[in-house]
Write a protein that binds this DNA or RNA. Structure first.
Lengths: 146, 146
DNA sequence: ATAAAGGGTACTTATTTAGTGCTGTATTAA
DNA sequence: TTAATACAGCACTAAATAAGTACCCTTTAT
């Protein structure tokens, strides 16, 4: 199956935990408590998120992390990119970006670069879902395809 | 990164190798030769594809596999489902299907079931791309978002 | 100065995926 | 009816990836 890493899942949980206090500052241990996730893992995720500028970090005593943007302006694609790096489907696509060397079946491979179509479709799909969408309460349902 | 398994990639290579001889019968060793992929692996992929009814298998001497449908009517989603099972994103979604037990953060998890939105979006995206789309020649370019 | 809190790196462990091999079953042809 | 061919299914091994952990460094408020 296609799957998103656990860390990306954690990232969404952590980011959406800000939902009622967007703009507020929380330390990694606070976030670990609030999300009930193990602290070292939370810490790792927070680092990745701040590197990707989804969170703004403040160092030193009384430091912590706060959202760089509102949840409605952060997409699932942003989170996945932050945690797992650029969205890439199959080795061919990865290599196509990294270097121009073709895969071992280059000659016979009619697919060269074709996965990029799929890649783009998936990225577009992920870009349509914001974190706010993922946290919206059950009494405010949301159409899946709209 | 989100990625599709190598086997799914192989499956696409194998299926698209029929492009100019759709409806024809090939044995697994023929397909291995044509695609230049290792035979045991091809064999494994073929079994999965015929279980999913994307290929029709004929047993016995002079047997082999032939396409159950035209390439334009087989989607990337079909292939991924055949090889990797149902598209599932994160453990929450998987468990949500298998049993009704909630994830360990159930109480605090505002995301319960929300990944399904993402799932559906991705599935829709993958359903829009047919194998014929993936094999079309470079001199017949194709818009990515159309 | 010291304590609190983030930053970075490297390592270990666990999980998943890929690859291989063996045995069974169906079909055809001699 | 027997031998050869080819798919079916299962189980095992090995390799790759991801997750989790630990350690030490840097920054900043008190």
């Amino acid at each position: 199956m296609i799957k998103i890493s656990k860390l990306a899942d954690y990232a969404v949980i952590i980011l959406t935990s800000y939902v009622d206090e967007q703009g507020q500052l929380f330390s990694s241990s606070q976030l670990a408590q609030r999300t009930k996730l193990p602290e070292p893992t939370v810490s790792k995720v927070l680092k990745l998120l701040s590197q990707a500028n989804l969170l703004h970090s403040i160092r030193g005593a009384n430091g912590g992390y706060k959202l760089s943007a509102e949840l409605k302006n952060i997409t699932v694609l942003d989170v996945i990119n932050a945690i797992d790096g650029t969205l890439a489907i199959t080795a061919c696509v990865e290599h196509a970006n990294a270097n121009s060397e073709q895969c071992s079946h280059a000659g016979s491979c009619a697919l060269k670069g074709r996965w990029n179509i799929v890649n783009t479709h998936v990225a577009n799909a992920l870009e349509k879902v914001s974190l706010q969408d993922m946290v919206c309460p059950v009494n405010e349902p949301r159409t899946v395809n709209g």
